[in-house]
Design a protein around this nucleic acid. Structure first.
Lengths: 199, 199
DNA sequence: ACCTGAACACCGTTCAAGT
DNA sequence: ACCTGAACACCGTTCAAGT
């Protein structure tokens, strides 16, 4: 119990840093499915060193995403300051779509990570879902959302749109979101309808 | 120019058949990304034989999908007999989602094939798009669809829903489609709105 | 005309051996 | 405490040699 886990050796710290830098670049160029051996080569370390620092692809992706995640969550929390809940929810959807479309393959990893507690990506997915839940609750309480729209629906929409952005284009993804939200949000017309309908 | 391309040798025909059967099973169990060597092993042929019959993964997937495609297109054409264009379009969307979610990875291959003319999957994607186009035209002409909804939007929705079905569940995919179509279809209320608004 | 399987290049992952 | 790289198992793809 001398140094515990503080102050890693200088070379270890540098290797970790270089691995993160090169992994980010490789993910950007080739997607999250890129060869881990190639990442190690780019970083100038042996493949065993990569595994020593990041025991799985999930762990490496999660580490690369760490800073970006922080910014996303801050943005999400800031949206509660916005008085109108519907645009706040729409802004959150747009932010998550952009986040999940950062690298090819990321949307799929996030979708898998959300459903797998052992995944290194699970915690951040849960946090994303939590913020979404609360924004949805606020929008529903304000009568801005269909009663039957769930947070799972919103999460599915965000993931699907990010995947479309990867596969087709950002524009097409934005169109899908816009069209779906038009169906998701309650309009004054819906309210009028319900008022006229018997319970 | 004696036998041209008729009556392939009996062993070749049998190998082709076995490869298709085992490929279908492997796709169902492991997705379209399954190992081609494993497919050849299951079929009891050498890997070179697989490549001789199907020069690419796309070609093998396209061959496996051939009959299913025929049924899908017949169904699509039959929908023009239905008098109401909006439910016909909705039925088409549901059919394509089910088709594209048949194997893990298929939605992605179809999305890629739609945009790549050299892909073996391109022709069937184009046919799918053509049927969608015509069903959309009919729905729009009948005033059942938003003017700004394009066939690319419908194709994106179908692909995205199929991908969600792979990643999450069929139920979630159906919910996404339902919510989006509510936004996509024009309601009588929309028409009333437009009538009241100046051009 | 068709099939075989070795050959090549590549990858994920582990772990004994080094410093 | 950390790094190296050989080792193992696997895969995609091609092509000379067989029948």
């Amino acid at each position: 119990m001398s140094s515990d886990r503080r102050r890693p050796r200088a070379d270890a710290r540098r290797n970790r840093e270089r691995l993160l830098t090169e992994a980010e670049a490789a993910f950007r160029e080739q997607g999250t499915g890129t060869s881990l051996e190639a990442v190690a080569r780019r970083a100038g370390v042996a493949i065993g060193t990569l595994y020593a620092h990041f025991p799985s692809r999930d762990a490496l992706v999660a580490a690369v995403l760490r800073e970006r995640n922080g910014a996303l969550f801050e943005h999400g929390e800031a949206l509660f300051a916005q008085p109108e809940p519907a645009p706040a929810l729409a802004a959150w959807v747009a932010a998550v779509v952009e986040h999940a479309a950062a690298y090819q393959g990321l949307a799929g990893m996030l979708a898998a990570g959300a459903g797998d507690e052992r995944s290194e990506l699970h915690a951040s997915c849960a946090r994303m879902n939590d913020i979404g839940d609360r924004l949805i609750g606020r929008a529903r309480a304000a009568g801005a959302l269909r009663q039957d729209a769930t947070s799972a629906d919103i999460f599915a929409l965000m993931n699907a749109a990010a995947w479309i952005a990867e596969q087709t284009s950002r524009e097409q993804a934005d169109r899908l979101v816009r069209l779906t939200l038009r169906g998701l949000f309650r309009t004054p017309k819906d309210e009028a309808d319900e008022a006229l309908r018997p319970a």
